[in-house]
Write a protein that binds this DNA or RNA. Structure first.
Lengths: 107, 107
DNA sequence: TGGCCATGTCTCGGCCTCCTATGCATTGGG
DNA sequence: CCCAATGCATAGGAGGCCGAGACATGGCCA
């Protein structure tokens, strides 16, 4: 599948994989890949700016997580993020219904 | 719904509405809007360059259709276009399965 | 012990694709 | 008589993801 097919749905993906609990960037990529059955391979150049933007919007909260000398940034959902995730799920339903009914008309 | 949400799926939409028979540009927009239940409103600035590109690719064939003094360009699928439509439908299934399983995990 | 790969975060430029705005022509209605 | 709807077309702009690369740590293996 074209890797950039996630365009417009990236926020929902990130919110969804963060729903069960906090993750850091690399783990987010792995979680998306795992939950999509290997189909979606996000790039670091894609998600880091997006995570920062989502934090600016108040959907995520981040903190540094020290693992020995190594540090990694741990992202977790805010309440606004959970609401945004619900909205993304609704929008996804409407989106697939709209495109799907054009692509495969019921008639 | 965000109007530019069709990004990446526009070709499939156009191929799909042309499947039953030839249409001209304005009618294509109306067909997409109708079949999507009013959710998808494409713009002329979006579809005309796309139709030209798809014709260059051999997916469509066009001819001038005279209605009195007015002329309009009638687009129809080629065999390659029908194959491309089948591919788009397969890709759509894989796409929705991938995003959907991340957004709403079975577990 | 030295090097390489995996892990991990981050930035910048580029490009694809769709949008907005605009122009132009014909036809019909108020 | 003018404006709206129909109809085609182009140009410029912008958003969002990608590719490439920089940089640092830690583990493995020769």
């Amino acid at each position: 599948m074209r890797a950039d097919a996630v365009r417009g749905h990236l926020d929902g993906l990130l919110l969804a994989v963060l729903e069960p609990g906090p993750l850091h960037g690399y783990a987010i990529i792995a979680a998306v890949q795992h939950r999509s059955g290997g189909a979606l391979e996000l790039r670091t150049g894609t998600i880091y700016p997006t995570l920062q933007r989502m934090e600016r919007l108040g959907l995520l909260r981040s903190s540094w997580d020290a693992v020995g000398e190594r540090r990694r940034r741990r992202y977790e959902l805010t309440d606004a993020g959970r609401r945004a995730l619900a909205d993304e799920r609704t929008a996804w339903q409407e989106f697939t219904a709209a495109i799907g009914s054009v692509l495969n008309p019921a008639t």
